[in-house]
Design a protein around this nucleic acid. Structure first.
Length: 433
DNA sequence: GGCTGCGGGCGCA
DNA sequence: TGCGCCCGCAGCC
């Protein structure tokens, strides 16, 4: 997030440090959750942002004791790679998510590369002066302040959801490899090298669960060699029409199909707030015009769309604005796949952190997404019995969209990645679909 | 079994 | 004093 993108008021807000005694409370703009924070970044999330509440990151971050109960500190564990740096026949590299638990990580490192059976090795993160990148979380008032220190010097590992899903998938019956191959072949080959784990996840599973894995393997992620792409790549397919989408276009990954033409030019402003949120949106902050940033990020396996430089919109009720678009976060479960139940008020486990209130996404932004939902899917996810055949996240707390077909825009957008992920997985599980 | 948060403790600069 | 790291514990999924 470049300071140039902000006005004087924003610059003042950006001047805070996580260690400050008092953090700004007159926050006008709060950020969308950043799944892959990198470099020396600061974000201010709503205290009701569930991902922020959980201090989630797609980097493998472990808790670090900083002897300060007000500030949660996490340090990056890096990425688990093949010691021979092997590549699959499709040129994919092995980037596994290091287990957070020390014992589990040791156990993980005793396993072999799923591709070449060489030993695995942990590529430690040394992006912060030779030490791991550290992330800091602090709850203060209505906000959750996030600050990262250091720049990851390693590829992105498998995301948490991928790792969780992989474990889950291990417990379910695996369809035959031939079916998987049939189902995934052409599409998989169309995925460019840019594509990383998320979009390829089912493909990875196809490899690991049905085709290439040695019996002893516990699963892995076969990501393409850097540059990589963020998990929210899946969003594109969630919105795409007819499965003929161009996955090589990163800007498309977050665009409703109807807006694709407006979105597909990376060097221009991708999201006009009025395009997506007509009644309740105002203000656009920035764009993704820096190709150098793109190239640099891509070279390190980063998705420039994870940068915080996003257009924003403002909630009329709160006068806050969110960076837009949100869907880079795919860490949340999909409401479409969630049994109807009232949202539970999450209780902060931290003694000094306030309990968040009701989910703002269920109250503040109601956007009719009917016109944006992919029409060619033929039916909505909630109508599709297949979409209920697998739910890997039992802890969801969200309610299904009501009969009014009003969707909670924020959450739904963020969930699209997971929806894609589930849809893709279901495609594997139900290849005849 | 693994993830997460907490906190005691140690070593180093 | 701050930081990095180890360890154990407890709660949760």
């Amino acid at each position: 997030m470049e300071p140039e993108e902000f006005g004087s008021e924003d610059k003042g807000i950006l001047s805070w440090d996580i260690n400050d005694i008092k953090l700004p409370q007159d926050v006008k703009k709060i950020d969308w959750f950043q799944e892959w924070p990198d470099s020396y970044e600061k974000f201010i999330y709503s205290a009701e942002d569930r991902n922020a509440q959980r201090h989630l990151s797609s980097w493998a971050m472990r808790n670090t004791n900083n002897h300060n109960s007000r500030i949660l500190k996490k340090s990056c564990l890096g990425v688990v790679v093949c010691s021979r740096n092997c590549s699959t026949s499709e040129g994919r590299k092995i980037y596994l998510r290091p287990a957070i638990c020390d014992k589990a990580r040791q156990k993980q490192q005793r396993k072999r590369c799923p591709n070449c059976d060489s030993p695995l090795k942990l590529l430690a993160c040394r992006g912060h002066g030779g030490f791991p990148v550290t992330n800091f979380w602090r709850h203060d008032g209505r906000f959750i302040f996030f600050q990262s220190k250091g720049e990851h010097d390693h590829p992105k590992p498998e995301t948490k959801l991928e790792a969780e899903a992989r474990r889950t998938m291990k417990k379910v019956h695996t369809p035959s490899s031939s079916i998987l191959k049939l189902n995934r072949g052409p599409e998989a080959k169309s995925v460019p090298a840019e594509t990383q784990s998320w979009g390829n996840l089912p493909l990875s599973w196809s490899f690991q669960e049905g085709i290439q894995l040695p019996p002893s393997d516990s699963g892995h992620l076969m990501a393409n060699a850097p540059p990589q792409k963020s998990p929210n790549d899946g969003l594109f397919k969630s919105y795409s029409l007819g499965g003929t989408t161009d996955l090589a276009d990163p800007t498309a990954s977050m665009c409703p199909a109807e807006l694709y033409e407006k979105c597909k030019v990376p060097s221009s402003r991708i999201y006009s707030s009025g395009d997506l949120l007509q009644p309740s949106v105002s203000g656009v902050r920035s764009d993704y015009s820096d190709l150098q940033t793109w190239n640099k990020n891509a070279a390190l396996g980063r998705n420039p769309f994870n940068d915080s430089s996003c257009p924003s919109y403002t909630f009329p009720q709160t006068s806050w604005s969110y960076d837009f678009p949100p869907p880079q976060s795919s860490l949340e479960p999909l409401p479409q796949q969630i049994p109807v139940e009232p949202p539970a008020a999450k209780t902060s486990s931290h003694p000094s952190w306030p309990n968040p209130g009701p989910d703002p996404y269920e109250e503040k932004v109601h956007v009719d997404l009917n016109s944006y939902y992919p029409s060619t899917t033929g039916h909505s996810p909630q109508e599709d019995p297949f979409l209920f055949t697998y739910t890997s996240y039992p802890h969801h707390q969200y309610s299904l969209p009501g009969k009014s077909s009003k969707w909670n825009f924020d959450e739904d957008m963020r969930y699209m990645g997971l929806e894609h992920y589930n849809n893709e997985m279901l495609l594997n599980l139900c290849p005849l679909r």
